[in-house]
């Protein structure tokens, strides 16, 4: 009896310690970049153009990151979620399903630098587009789609069979059941999947080096809506260095007087953006669920 009580206390203490350690690591990372950034940070940094001689800013690359995020999610979310529904509700078991699962796992485990090379061969060289935002987004889709597919499938599968049976017993069709009984319950899980994939878009550098490129047009003119003009901020056919690629570049081969400061401040912005995005998506998921459940 005394032994099991001691073991119980020990388990509690160890689990607490692990949790505290994880949180401390996270806090330390954020604190490091915040402290390093404070002396030089100003809001102007967020919108200014990069510069070789002065600190400059990250305006264009921040825009590129947001643009790339939206473009990638536009490509990935519909396919990922619909594919997840197919895998969970329609696919059943069989060689095709197994083949899809196998490919999912395989692509998920390919290093992103390799996916980047594949993207280069296909979306940069073979298409003749050169380094473009669209090429980058398609490359990101290559390894985000299997992840989102898997996560949405799991979210849909965790919906209790009772919900489906109840809906079908009320005379709803299969699609009505999926749309009105299953998806509302699965929304938080699907949103989590979307947030995870979105986080990878924001954070990914390796796969974008050879696809979206290491440079970007500066002095964006947002009134230029021509989607084929490589200088337009709205064009998918332009070089589009994202924030993470920019950090990598500043840190490893940057020139100029403030390379270190720029990398630190950019990292802080990246972390804050990812954090804000996570919290925002949680709120969105909750709001969506309240809406569909009529509460």
């Amino acid at each position: 009896m005394r032994r099991s009580l001691a073991a119980d206390r020990l388990a509690t203490a160890v689990l607490w310690a692990v949790a505290v350690f994880v949180i401390l690591v996270l806090v330390a990372i954020i604190a490091y970049f915040v402290i390093e950034s404070i002396p030089t940070f100003s809001l102007a940094f967020l919108v200014a153009d990069p510069s070789l001689t002065d600190i400059g800013g990250i305006g264009p690359v921040l825009w590129n990151s947001a643009y790339m995020l939206v473009l990638t999610m536009l490509l990935t979310v519909p396919l990922g979620v619909l594919g997840g529904i197919y895998m969970a509700e329609y696919a059943g078991e069989g060689w095709l399903t197994n083949a899809i699962r196998f490919s999912q796992e395989l692509i998920s485990s390919v290093p992103s630098i390799v996916v980047g090379l594949f993207g280069f061969a296909l979306f940069v060289a073979a298409t003749g587009w050169g380094f473009t935002a669209l090429g980058g987004a398609l490359t990101l889709m290559v390894f985000n789609l299997p992840l989102l597919l898997r996560l949405s499938e799991q979210a849909i599968r965790t919906v209790p069979a009772d919900e489906r049976a109840a809906s079908l017993a009320l005379g709803a069709t299969k699609w009505q059941t999926i749309r009105h009984a299953v998806l509302p319950v699965a929304i938080p899980g699907v949103v989590t999947g979307i947030v995870l994939t979105a986080g990878r878009v924001f954070g990914e550098a390796a796969a974008l080096l050879f696809t979206a490129g290491l440079s970007t047009p500066t002095r964006y003119d947002f009134s230029n809506l021509n989607p084929l003009d490589p200088q337009s901020p709205w064009s998918p056919f332009r070089n589009a260095t994202t924030l993470s690629v920019f950090i990598w570049k500043s840190n490893s081969e940057g020139l100029g007087n403030y390379v270190h400061e720029v990398a630190n401040m950019s990292s802080m912005v990246l972390i804050v953006m990812v954090l804000a995005f996570n919290l925002g998506s949680r709120w969105l998921g909750g709001a969506l669920q309240r809406r569909v459940s009529g509460l």
Partner: peptide, 18 residues
């Protein structure tokens, strides 16, 4: 096995689907 929805939406589920 009510749906995780409001009481109203639970009862309205069938008629809505029809």
């Amino acid at each position: 096995n009510p749906f995780p929805m409001s009481i109203y939406e639970n009862v309205a589920f069938g008629p809505r689907r029809h």
